[in-house]
Amino acid sequence: MSDTKLIEVKDLAKHFEVRAQGAREDKALLKAVDGVSLDICEGEILGIVGESGCGKSTLGKTVLRLQEKTSGQVLYRGEDLFAMGRVDMKEMTKNIQMIFQDPYSSLNPRKKVAQIIGQPLRIHNAGTPAEQITRIDHLMDEVGLNPKFKRRYPHQFSGGQRQRIGIARALALGPEFIVCDEAVSALDVSVQAQILNLLLDLQVRHGFTYMFISHDLAVVEFIATRILVMYLGRVVEIASKDELVNQHVHPYTKALFEAFPVTDPRARKGKKQIVMGDVPSPIHPPTGCHFHPRCPYAEPRCREQYPPLREISPGHSVACWVV
């Protein structure tokens, strides 16, 4: 790991206009990502955890400019992605790639495996057709697929094998930075372990930098080097893995760790402190700190003002008035 910043996200926001449920207003603003700043250094695995609707997937897609931003900046080695023209952006796709959650919908059902993996090579005219075929075989081998199956269609593979196809496709152009959006969440545990190993092996071999998005605390805790916790579009806590796992301070982070089922029946929590209430709708988030209605430590100030993200120790920032 080096200190060179590969990705810098500055105050990024992505809002969607949605049809409101109530009859009075006909449009509402869903602030999926609302002022997120973060840096990712070369060789790092930044884990992003949060529950559904916290904006972690939107963040991943916006960082890669797969959708336009509302405001803010995303810098890749100091270059602003959103300031790039079409040609530059196409060049940029060689460096930044994505691995998706659903191995069923992320592969085009009408293309054979060789076409799917070879598509990035074709789009960027990488090498002669013969070189491309060699490259496809090599990529399949690298992700643990036998190249002799390259004439098959995606539906003829199991979930784990499809995920390998998706990984091979992301690898094809030799990227530096890969966003893994719930990349192992749809898989069975035993297959999930295979894919996690594969992702780590590839990182060692190619020096990738990952942004690893997941709702599964155990997976993030295992794979990440640094962890960021999101709640309703905002960063609530960010720290190195060890610090976040052992010394998390934000009440929401505490609630997440408390709620996460431990795979040890002797550690069964009995009457543990469970955070009550539902995740509020991101269309009408609570005023002030978004977590205050569920927070056992909430003060009057929490209701009025959103707490800024402040550094409490080197590399450990938290957005909370109380800590």
Binding site: V189, S190, V191, Q192, A193, Q194, L196, N197, L200, A218, V219, E221, F222, I223, V262, T263, D264
Partner: peptide, 18 residues
């Protein structure tokens, strides 16, 4: 052994997958 939350993986970088 496939569970990343398994205690034996504290600090490990590889799971014993099936």
């Amino acid at each position: 052994n496939s569970l990343p939350s398994n205690q034996k993986y504290k600090g490990a970088r590889r799971l014993e997958a099936i």
